[in-house]
């Protein structure tokens, strides 16, 4: 099956993540332009390490401090696709979370994110096409102890994406959240190594390549009817009662 893309440019929030970098390669193979945002010097260095030519144009965009200048830089080119991989981890028991952490986490991951989404969708509206793809997590509905802030922010974000799709669908903007389960990268990789669970969870791991390829398909014209909803890709991790 050939897949097609009516848009040309993809903005990847959290572009320095393993999935973001893998997706970038796939987008380039399809002839699309990828713009990768970073939120730290380390992130920029990772982008430079994999795609030296993209590092120069990588906008600095941090949900915790979204400025007009940062938005203007990220939207310098017309963006057809937004892939939202940006999410800081902050593990704490809710009853132990500080007021500062609570305020900062939701301000960044809900309000800050919404500000970015508003700017991006207004840009898409002018051209009557846009595709928003939020990489969510099974923690949105099945958080582990300590993932209260993370899971709640993910679930709130799923709601935002659903509403964007609902409100702007008639103007060519679609949106979808993809809940990934245990990915062998980032916090998933740290969990597997820390808890020594690689062997017993081997069949429940989603690889970075699988995640990136699925995201590519979900961006394609053939997947545009997947909108206004949330789907799960977790190798069956959350389908059973006990693990």
């Amino acid at each position: 099956m050939n897949i097609g893309f009516q848009g040309k440019t993809a903005l990847i929030l959290g572009g320095s993540s393993s999935i973001g970098l893998a997706l970038t390669r796939l987008l380039q193979d399809e002839g699309l332009i990828a713009i990768l945002t970073h939120a730290s010097k380390d992130g920029l260095a990772r982008i430079k390490g994999h795609f030296p030519d993209l590092a120069t144009g990588s906008p600095h965009l941090d949900f915790s401090d979204v400025s007009d200048e940062a938005l203007a830089s990220a939207l310098e080119n017309d963006v057809d696709y937004l892939i939202d991989l940006a999410q800081a981890d902050h593990e704490t028991y809710l009853a132990a979370a500080s007021q500062t952490d609570m305020d900062a986490y939701f301000k960044a991951h809900v309000t800050g994110r919404l500000r970015v989404l508003k700017a991006v969708t207004r840009s898409m509206l002018a051209r009557r096409f846009g595709r928003l793809l939020h990489v969510s997590s099974t923690a949105a509905t099945l958080p582990a102890p300590g993932q209260g802030l993370y899971g709640a922010a993910k679930r709130a974000t799923e709601g935002l994406y659903q509403s964007f799709a609902l409100e702007l669908g008639s103007r060519g903007v679609s949106a979808l959240s993809l809940r990934l389960g245990l990915v062998d990268a980032g916090r998933g990789e740290r969990f597997l190594d820390r808890e020594n669970r690689r062997q017993d969870l081997a069949q429940k791991i989603v690889t970075v390549d699988q995640a990136a390829a699925t995201l590519l398909f979900l961006l394609s014209d053939q997947a545009l009817a997947l909108t206004c909803t949330t789907i799960t890709m977790d190798a069956g991790l959350t389908a059973q009662k006990y693990l």
């Binding site: 207004r122 509206l125 002018a126 409100e167 702007l168 008639s170 103007r171």
Partner: peptide
């Protein structure tokens, strides 16, 4: 409402 949103965006751009 959706028309007003588009009108605002178009004026902005």
């Amino acid at each position: 409402s959706i028309d007003l949103l588009e009108i605002g965006v178009a004026m902005q751009h």
